[in-house]
């Protein structure tokens, strides 16, 4: 037996296969079942998808590396629930490709930030955090207000999202660019389509305070304001509900 083992090890290919086999076991056992066990992700019938504007804002969030300093995952610990709100459920990031749970809180957790502050507060804070909070160490994102949001390719973005499993309809994909504009221009003819496709609860307003222009600030604030509000499941679930 050990003669065989010795010969195997002498052969580079045998060593290669041995490494692959031994190294694969851990990943297989831990990851594969997550896809097949039903309880991994809870059911939440009211869970909605991101609107095109919110998705664009999420992409700005990713582009600027916000996840490096802000987590989006309230752990099941008393102090976290009291500081930030109900602990996060798996279903809440069901449509997050990729997830933005984060690993570091140089700034506070953002999983429950939606609706906590006004749009004006967010715009002023993003424009220069030290105008709002003198000791903040967050970078100023003043160019977001000046940069027009690119919307012509949002249909393609929704399509790619559908390819990885997010249930966007053909209607949503076809109207992606218009919906992005309409969500930040409540008086425009495109605004109605947004609530019609994404639900009555969708925020439709001029997030950056300038109804005529669609800026990256609109998108980012729209995204921040919907964080933790895609479903009510977390507020109703087990320990969170009794609190």
């Amino acid at each position: 037996m050990f003669g065989l083992h010795y010969r195997l090890e002498r052969k580079a290919i045998g060593l290669t296969l041995g490494i692959i086999l031994v190294a694969s076991i851990g990943g297989l056992v831990e990851i594969a079942p997550l896809f097949t066990i039903h309880q991994t992700v809870e059911d939440a019938p009211d869970m909605r998808v991101y609107t095109p504007l919110e998705l664009a804002g999420r992409n700005v969030y990713i582009r600027e590396g916000c996840y490096a300093c802000h987590s989006q995952m309230v752990r099941t610990l008393r102090d976290e629930v009291e500081r930030y709100g109900p602990y996060s459920l798996a279903v809440e990031s069901k449509y997050d490709h990729p997830m933005l749970w984060g690993s570091k809180r140089t700034g506070p957790d953002l999983a429950r930030i939606g609706g906590k502050y006004s749009d004006e507060w967010h715009v002023a804070h993003l424009n220069n955090p030290r105008d709002v909070l003198s000791v903040s160490v967050m970078p100023a994102y003043s160019w977001l207000l000046k940069t027009t949001l690119r919307t012509d390719d949002l249909g393609a973005h929704l399509k790619a999202q559908r390819a990885v499993g997010v249930p966007y309809t053909d209607d949503m994909i076809a109207n992606a660019s218009k919906d992005a504009y309409g969500q930040a221009a409540p008086d425009s003819p495109y605004a109605d389509g947004v609530t019609q496709r994404y639900g009555k609860a969708t925020n439709v307003r001029a997030f950056d305070g300038k109804p005529g222009e669609l800026t990256e600030m609109d998108a980012l604030v729209a995204y921040l304001q919907v964080l933790g509000r895609l479903t009510d499941a977390a507020h109703k679930s087990g320990a969170n509900a009794t609190r």
Partner: peptide
């Protein structure tokens, strides 16, 4: 079929 059941059976 590498589901939870299979793996639990294997580990048990």
């Amino acid at each position: 079929d590498l589901g939870h059941g299979t793996l639990v059976w294997f580990s048990k």
